[in-house]
């Protein structure tokens, strides 16, 4: 290649620029499979649901379109509420699948992955937060799956989702007093200042989700740029490339047998490790 470049004469400086544009991370990499298909499917279904719940929820909270003419000619709020309730039902479905996968998933998907409470995890949490705050990605502990900060934040999102769903179904049940949903959540309004208290919590949760989405998207993309971690692709393809030159807090490369690419099956590391 050097000779060919040499043949191009004075193009060396140009090539340097091209090389900078197409810079590569050097080293040895291997592909690991992290997120099972149901997890990925539920992630994107839930994302679509939450997005439509936010849009329809803000309309229900403060209708930003108005119709005119005879009321009989329109059913705008009715349709918006239908979409809201249907999306909520689908979101509950994704929650049920996720809850099942907390029991049968790999080490990155199981219940303990939501609660990194050991001393080592706490110290890694502090280190991770410190690396974010001081802009030192090189000081960040390496994780194949989620780092403790991610683990806790996703646990928080699940809690937020449960609070939002429970308050939402409490409000939903009001139109049918005596129904199963009404009875199931009838204990809640007296504890939280009546239906208006439920409503304001449900509403504030919407904003909490918006803030979460902002941070989630930012940190995912930032991670791809700064750490070259390929996490955005991992929630689409299920896996990502990790450097075999590093060691990882949650994954021992030496213990997981590798498979020839592309014919071999990708081993789920959690089950082998």
């Amino acid at each position: 290649m050097t000779t060919r470049v040499g043949a191009l004469g004075g193009a060396r400086g140009m090539l340097g620029r091209v090389q900078r544009v197409f810079a590569r991370e050097r080293g040895n990499f291997t592909w690991v499979y992290l997120w099972s298909a149901p997890i990925r499917a539920m992630h994107w279904i839930a994302a679509a649901c939450i997005l439509s719940l936010i849009l329809t929820g803000f309309y229900i909270g403060r209708p930003y379109f108005a119709t005119s003419g005879e009321a009989s000619a329109h059913f705008l709020m009715g349709r918006v509420r239908f979409v809201h309730f249907a999306a909520a039902a689908v979101l509950v479905m994704t929650g049920i699948v996720r809850a099942y996968w907390l029991m049968v998933g790999n080490q990155f998907e199981r219940l303990p992955a939501l609660f990194p409470v050991t001393g080592k995890n706490i110290s890694n949490l502090v280190k991770t937060a410190g690396s974010y705050l001081t802009f030192r990605p090189d000081k960040q502990p390496n994780f194949v799956g989620h780092n403790p900060m991610q683990q806790w934040s996703y646990t928080a999102v699940y809690v937020m989702a449960v609070v939002t769903v429970v308050t939402g179904f409490t409000l939903y049940g009001q139109s049918a007093p005596g129904s199963v949903i009404f009875r199931a959540f009838s204990w809640l309004p007296p504890l939280l200042g009546g239906l208006q208290g439920i409503r304001v919590i449900h509403h504030l949760m919407t904003w909490a989700f918006i803030i979460f989405i902002e941070m989630h998207v930012y940190f995912a993309i930032r991670s791809d740029y700064v750490e070259r971690a390929g996490v955005v692709s991992s929630i689409i393809t299920g896996g990502r490339y990790i450097s075999t030159d590093h060691s990882y807090e949650d994954y021992d490369i030496a213990k997981v047998p590798s498979h020839p690419w592309p014919t071999g099956e990708h081993r789920t590391p959690g089950k082998g490790a």
Binding site: G61, R62, Y132, F135, R136, V200, H203, L204, T206, W207, I210, I211, E214, M215, Y218, R222, Y225, V226
Partner: peptide
Amino acid sequence: ADTIGLALAIGAAAGIAAHGAATVFT
């Protein structure tokens, strides 16, 4: 609720923008 929610969301967005800019710089 909306004033507070919007303020926090904008605050988070501003924080993210600042963090992102600082990341790019460093």
